[in-house]
């Protein structure tokens, strides 16, 4: 026989003693086979199950019924005994920790739209490359300064700012502090956890102001600045923007 460790035996005996209402020593003796096991004379709970009442078959069925032997009892008067084992409470065993997310397969639901959009981009790119010639002016000459000399278009908003403010502020401090540091710090400054547009009107307003300001400054730099960085009207004086050399023909 397997040697059961003493401490486990005692633990089991305690449980048995508690369940049967006997002493621990008694339970231990019973388990070792030294005493007659205590039995409980508890009557099982009896549930009365009422016999199913069978209604008299309607007349047309009578013919069918005739084939069946008459002795067959359709509703035997039986007494079914059932025991209630346990009651399972109506709550889940596993507790979900996160909300279920509605997901779809990447193939084809994401990859097909992606493929279509990159095909559309390719078509658009080939189309504009076929009709619009990239600018190529005279060979670079450090001795001949064009008037005005303009930066690439995405820096023209800054170049426009340079004409108002000190270059250390407009040319360095604004791009470095606002353009880099402040942009990177946005998620650490905006501690509002909500991402519903109605709950973050202030943030949306700020960004929209930034877009409008940067866009306006860039457009002024691109279209409304001529020789000497003086104000010009594109529809009167023409456009000084060589990126769009073969694009815009106002003159």
């Amino acid at each position: 026989m397997v040697d059961i460790p003493e401490h486990l035996l005692i633990k089991t005996a305690e449980a048995r003693a508690k369940a049967l209402g006997i002493s621990v020593e008694q339970a231990l003796a019973e388990m070792k086979g030294e005493a007659e096991p205590t039995t409980i004379s508890k009557e099982p709970e009896v549930i009365d199950v009422k016999p199913i009442e069978v209604k008299e078959a309607p007349a047309p069925a009578a013919a069918v019924k005739a084939d069946i032997p008459a002795e067959v009892d359709f509703a035997p008067e039986t007494r079914v005994t059932q025991r209630l084992l346990t009651v399972v409470k109506a709550k889940p065993i596993q507790k979900p920790t996160s909300e279920p997310v509605d997901k779809v397969n990447t193939w084809p639901h994401l990859m097909l739209p992606e493929f279509i959009s990159l095909m559309a981009m390719t078509a658009f790119l080939i189309f504009i490359s076929a009709i619009l010639q990239a600018p190529l002016l005279e060979e670079a000459n450090p001795n001949i300064t064009p008037n005005p000399a303009k930066a690439p278009w995405y820096f023209l908003g800054l170049q426009e700012l340079l004409s108002y403010w000190d270059p250390q502020i407009a040319g360095v401090m604004i791009p470095l502090i606002i353009g880099v540091a402040a942009f990177m710090a946005i998620p650490y400054i905006d501690r509002n956890k909500d991402n519903k547009p109605s709950k973050r009107k202030y943030a949306i307003m700020l960004w929209t102001f930034f877009l409008a300001g940067a866009g306006t400054l860039s457009l002024i730099g691109i279209l409304f600045r001529g020789p000497g960085w003086n104000w010009t009207y594109p529809w009167i004086d023409g456009v000084w923007f060589d990126d769009l050399l073969d694009w815009v023909h106002f003159e």
Partner: peptide, 12 residues
Amino acid sequence: WDQLAIWAVTVG
């Protein structure tokens, strides 16, 4: 290496 290139980069 045309006039557009060299002067835009000079401004930048």
